[in-house]
Amino acid sequence: MNLKTKLILAIILMLGISINAQNEKTIKGVVVSVADNFPIPGVNVIVVGTTNGTTTDFDGNYEIKAKSGDVLQFSYVGYTTKTVIVGEQLTIDVSLKEDIAQLDEVVVIGYGDQKQKNVTSALTKIDSEEIQDIAVARVEDALQGRVAGLRIQTVASEAGGDPKITLRGPGSITGSSSPLIVVDGVVLGTDADILSSIDNNDIESISVLKDASSVAIYGSRGANGVIMVTLKQGVEGDTKFTYNTFTGYQFATDNKNFTFSVAEERARLDGLQSAVNSIVDPVNFARVNSRYDQAYAELAAWDYLSTLSGGEMDLQKEILPGGTITSHSFGARGGSELTKYSASVAFLEDEGIALADNFKKYNANLKIDTKSKSGKIKAGVNLRGSYNDQDRYLLDLLMR
């Protein structure tokens, strides 16, 4: 290739670069949110099919070089991605709409809201769908087996009895190890009875904080973890009514220690007579023989009572007859773009499994949220009422 040919190719190449550079232009604009028209900082702006890109500044402004016919893509977490074809304009302003599917993944934590995939602390979220259809008298009963490290121990056998709640084991030998309970951002304390005052159907979600992040905002009160309950809010649109109900029957399985007859128990005690007589140590013999005589005395009393009542009884069926559990919940939700409301009333009755055991719970809830047209002023009212009526006749008799 001679010098003349090389010179012509170089001129053609430079001319092509010059033409391409002349076609590029600087595009400027602002990216805002459709919801409130506020600028969105950090939006990714790229020319599709290239590595050319930029991000918006704090005021939502961006600047990028592109050619006519190029496609600009605008994307940001929590908003739907939008594309715009570059024409002859030099200014392209864009409005992004919130992505509802992504917003549904938001979880409530002690210091605000974050997307669940971005939360690095030990957090478990339970949605309302997972607990509202379970036939239980208390919220914490529905959480059993659903949160790793959450232990719900039954310490009261009566219907509606308060359980003992711990997260990742006891945090203190002498002090309380119960987690802090927060309802709609209001700290209510560590008393397990707080959760019994909430109707399962009013719950939107439950977030359980189990590590040091719970101390970040609540201090030493959250040292044993935090259970954060978010109640349902009103929705924009016509008023929608809901009615939820369930009924069930609960009973104790047969226990052979309660189903033997007087004759079977007398035969068992007679068979132990030789073992008792073979005890050599006088102190040990006196102790065992005293309990042996007491067992015979109780058997004689049982036999006498059976005679008076017309025959032997199945003690388990008499003391633990079983009972029904019934729940009724009625709710209404609705509102406008600026004001939303939610109201509900509920009744639950749990007869338990023990004789004369009964637990009744009455709930009422009213929640109103409103905001100004600009969205800068917000106000709300949250009223909750609860009344529990608990009968523990059998327990009272045993404690006397």
Results as ranks from 00 to 15, higher is better:
318 E>P: 01
307 T>Y: 14
336 S>Q: 10
339 T>Q: 15
308 L>C: 10
315 L>T: 11
360 K>S: 09
318 E>W: 06
358 N>E: 14
302 W>Y: 08
313 M>N: 07
318 E>L: 03
313 M>R: 12
327 S>Y: 13
344 S>Q: 15
352 G>T: 13
343 A>G: 10
302 W>T: 13
353 I>R: 02
353 I>F: 11
329 S>Y: 10
310 G>I: 05
318 E>C: 00
314 D>Q: 11
297 A>I: 12
312 E>F: 09
312 E>M: 10
319 I>F: 02
354 A>Y: 09
308 L>Y: 13
297 A>D: 05
350 D>T: 03
346 A>P: 06
317 K>E: 06
303 D>G: 09
320 L>F: 10
341 Y>H: 06
319 I>V: 13
364 A>C: 12
296 Y>S: 02
353 I>G: 02
338 L>Q: 03
333 R>L: 05
313 M>P: 02
350 D>A: 01
364 A>W: 10
355 L>R: 14
333 R>H: 00
329 S>R: 07
354 A>E: 06
350 D>M: 07
320 L>G: 01
331 G>L: 11
330 F>E: 00
342 S>Q: 10
350 D>C: 09
303 D>Q: 14
311 G>A: 11
330 F>Y: 13
305 L>Q: 11
299 L>G: 07
311 G>I: 04
332 A>P: 01
357 D>S: 13
363 N>P: 04
363 N>L: 14
327 S>E: 07
355 L>P: 09
325 I>H: 03
335 G>T: 07
306 S>W: 03
325 I>K: 05
362 Y>H: 13
303 D>V: 00
355 L>E: 11
298 E>V: 06
353 I>W: 02
321 P>L: 09
341 Y>P: 00
338 L>G: 00
362 Y>W: 14
356 A>E: 12
344 S>K: 09
340 K>E: 01
301 A>M: 10
333 R>P: 00
331 G>Y: 08
357 D>C: 14
364 A>P: 09
331 G>A: 15
354 A>I: 06
295 A>D: 00
360 K>H: 12
333 R>W: 00
348 L>H: 03
299 L>D: 05
348 L>E: 00
300 A>K: 15
304 Y>D: 09
337 E>V: 12
324 T>W: 03
319 I>R: 12
332 A>K: 03
361 K>C: 01
314 D>P: 02
327 S>K: 14
297 A>L: 15
306 S>P: 04
302 W>D: 10
355 L>G: 06
324 T>C: 00
337 E>L: 05
